[in-house]
Amino acid sequence: MKLLTHNMLTSKCMKGVSVGYPLSIKALDIRTVEVEFNPEFVAKMIPKIDWAVLCSAAESLGKTELPKEVIDNYENDQDFLKKVHHILLEVDVIDGELVCPETGRKFPINNGIPNMLLNEDEIYL
């Protein structure tokens, strides 16, 4: 699971959960995969993501290279875009779990794939 995916995931479809965001990450196995750098893509992605959630997710994985706030004029700062590129797309959580902030429900991550399936008693029929 990439942190860009994590930035959009929520447990709000569960019965009794209202926001379900952000899910906290308990990682057991983190790997780095190389992804081709596309500065235009990263620059376009930055305004779409929840920056604070990305920063704290990265921190929880021991990655502290991102500033608390998006820097000015980031579109033209290759170094900054590269850092963001790395955090968004190259960090891959292979094993671990995601935790719902409201209920504590755990969603396992196996082989890099979060299991977001809900049981019948967890959904509104």
Partner: peptide
């Protein structure tokens, strides 16, 4: 490819992303 397991009746995505 990036994926997650889910039923299509409950997509675990935020609104409007």
């Amino acid at each position: 490819f990036e994926t997650f397991l889910t039923n299509c009746l409950q997509l675990p995505f935020k609104d409007a992303v």
